[in-house]
Design a binder for these strands. Structure first.
Length: 637
DNA sequence: GTAGGGTTAG
């Protein structure tokens, strides 16, 4: 029997429960099961880690070992308790006496380290393995992919291939998420097709996610459409893809199809649906989604999406209600609410909320600070803006990024501090980009500083010769200074380069239908009635002192003609249509693709007073709440 | 023993 025990070292421990061995005991037989094994296993099943470790101690003292299944249960028990120290002890115990366990058990140990976020320990163990199977490789690949160490994950796949181990659906669905280049993705995709793994729903959803991440939505849709069997996560992936790329229409369309084929909406679906509503400003549809959200009351991500939807649809009352009753709030909830208040013109409330966040909320991040700077910028709080900007590094350890500089430039621009803007641009720790120069250009327009504007516009066009915004802003500035020859020159260049100005467009939701108004477009069925009422309003407002502000006309027109081109701006048509369609107590909500012009802003203020209406207009940057003759932006936008 | 979808700024 002594001779046998020497050979048994090579067999211990095995994956079979009925074969447990001892190396050191001279009385063992190949079928010897230490009496402690059963109680060890029972403690593990009951997740009683202290008792289990106690039994392990006594086994170690007696020099007996349990089988692999028992160890795997013990490791599960450590994981359930988050017990790193005990996990490491089990590892040492299994490897004691220079023994190497079977691949199966080593994989479990590697997985334990991965779950404990100890990737280096996992890698050391992986490197020492005499033989690695597909699970060993996949565990490591997925660990690196989850940690966003994408290079490492991709490299491991190459080594795995070199070692002749065939990836399976687990491997592909993990490594796909680490893929960053379209070329690699195409290669992976064809490999997946070759081995016939594209029908696996995990692989399919990963393919959709990665194509979406790379902006290849048509390819993502193709992968989705090839699905024969249904799967709710695959549906959610494709809906999220379109919602994240601001194609709310397609996202909602897919959502309806998903419901039609019988898949219920879960948290993830609803989050994407809310995001789609947000991008389309569909408050009423968002409210309907809210009813379903109530089923998932505790879901933080979903509540954040709901909060954002109400903020972006300009319904601050609802947003505040949601925010106040959220049981759990994270940095995203706070940042959303702060930015939401700021964008809707409630800057002081935004700053007050930031102060309470400092006291009772999570640590602010770089996005929170953007909301704070935005609030300062839109309230003209230059000193406060400088304070938050200069202290963000000291207080929160956040270095200002391009966006923070952008907010500060915006703030300085609104406060007519063009020189300070130029100074700050030179101070930036990163290269100015198109957005930086556009902020300067925009400020020059308001201050009518033609020379600086020309400089800024040329910088933009150096970076992007196709930038429509630069041409339009430049031509606006020339128009304001009545330099019509220069306006014509800009127009000629635009024409030559095939660049067209995006037409002003406004949308309004009436009876679950979206009505679009485009400057000069007469296709709306009620356009004649709208124009008739618009003219009446303009006459009545003229009695109240409304004079069209022709500074906002871009063409070289004279007198009455100039007023006419302002008269039919899309937001004026949408406002009149809103007044015609809704009772007085209902808020008129409009969203548009371009910033509102000064004349329409004045018109909206006066008509809100005349008609006793609450009008909310969302432009690409912010919101205007018009009521009783004033706007929440304080005429500062 | 290894794999999935959703939220904040611009």
């Amino acid at each position: 029997m002594r001779g046998v025990s020497k050979h048994l070292q090579l067999l211990r421990p095995t994956s079979s429960r009925c074969c447990s061995y001892s190396v050191n005991s001279s009385l063992v037989s190949p079928h010897y099961v230490p009496p402690e094994t059963e109680s060890l296993l029972n403690h593990c099943y009951r997740r009683d880690l202290p008792s289990a470790m106690h039994v392990l101690d006594s086994m170690e003292r007696r020099g007996v070992w349990a089988d692999s299944i028992t160890y795997s249960e013990l490791i599960k028990c450590c994981l359930a308790h988050g017990a790193v120290r005990e996990g490491k002890r089990v590892h040492r115990h299994i490897f004691s006496n220079g023994y190497h366990p079977k691949t199966f058990l080593t994989n479990i140990l590697i997985n334990m380290y991965v779950k404990f976020n100890l990737l280096e320990e996992a890698q050391v163990l992986f490197d020492k393995m005499p033989e690695r199977n597909v699970v060993s490789w996949t565990t490591m690949i997925s660990a690196y992919s989850n940690a966003q160490l994408n290079d490492r994950a991709m490299r491991l796949l190459a080594f795995m291939f070199r070692d002749g181990v065939m990836p399976n659906m687990f491997t592909f669905s993990s490594v796909l998420r680490a893929c960053e280049r379209l070329y690699d993705l195409k290669q992976l995709h064809s490999w997946i097709m070759k081995v016939g793994l594209e029908s696996d729903v995990f692989v399919r959803s990963a393919l959709i996610d990665v194509y979406s991440k790379m902006g290849e939505l048509l390819e993502a849709l193709k992968v989705f459409r090839e699905m024969m069997t249904g799967d709710s996560v695959v549906w959610n992936s494709i809906i999220a893809a379109f919602a994240q790329h601001s194609d709310g229409d397609e996202a909602l369309h897919l959502y309806k199809s998903m419901r039609r084929v019988g898949f219920p909406a879960d948290q993830s679906t609803l989050t994407s649906v809310l995001r789609a509503c947000t991008s389309l400003s569909l408050l009423e549809l968002g409210r309907q989604a809210h009813v379903h959200v109530l089923k998932f009351d505790q879901d933080l991500i979903l509540n954040n999406a709901l909060l954002d939807m109400y903020c972006k649809c300009g319904s601050l009352e609802d947003a505040k209600f949601i925010f106040n009753r959220m049981a759990k709030k994270d940095v995203i909830s706070w940042s959303t609410m702060i930015a939401g208040l700021a964008q809707n013109g409630f800057s002081m409330e935004a700053l007050n909320l930031f102060e309470s966040m400092k006291v009772q909320g999570p640590k602010p991040n770089h996005i929170t600070i953007l909301g704070v700077l935005f609030a300062c910028s839109h309230a003209g709080l230059v000193n406060e803006g400088w304070y938050y900007f200069r202290s963000m590094n000291n207080l929160y350890g956040i270095d200002p990024g391009r966006e923070h500089y952008g907010c500060m430039l915006d703030l300085l621009g609104r406060a007519e501090k063009l020189d300070d803007m130029v100074k700050l641009i030179h101070e930036m720790n990163c290269e100015p980009d198109v957005v930086t120069w556009r902020t300067l250009l925009d400020a020059c327009r308001a201050r009518q500083n033609v020379d600086l504007a020309t400089y800024a516009a040329k910088e933009i066009l150096k970076l992007d010769p196709q930038d429509t915004g630069a041409y339009v802003l430049l031509s606006n500035i020339y128009a304001i200074s009545k330099r019509w020859n220069d306006v014509a020159e800009v127009r000629r260049t635009m024409k030559k380069r095939g660049i067209r100005k995006e037409p002003g467009c406004s949308w309004i939701e009436v009876n679950k239908q979206i009505h679009a108004f485009i400057l000069g477009d007469k296709s709306h069925p009620q356009i004649d009635e709208i124009n008739r009422q618009l003219n009446q309003f303009i006459c009545r407002l003229a009695g109240a002192g409304y004079v069209p502000d022709t500074n906002f006309v871009l063409q070289d027109l004279e007198g009455e003609q100039r007023e006419d081109s302002l008269r039919y701006h899309s937001e004026k048509l949408a406002i009149v249509f809103g007044i015609m369609s809704f009772p007085k107590e209902k808020t008129i909500r409009i969203w548009k693709n371009l910033k509102i012009c000064g004349d329409c802003h004045k018109f909206a203020k006066l008509i809100a007073e005349l008609e006793q209406r609450h009008i909310v207009i969302r432009d690409p940057i912010r919101y205007h709440h018009f009521q009783d003759g004033v706007c929440s932006c304080g005429d500062y936008w």
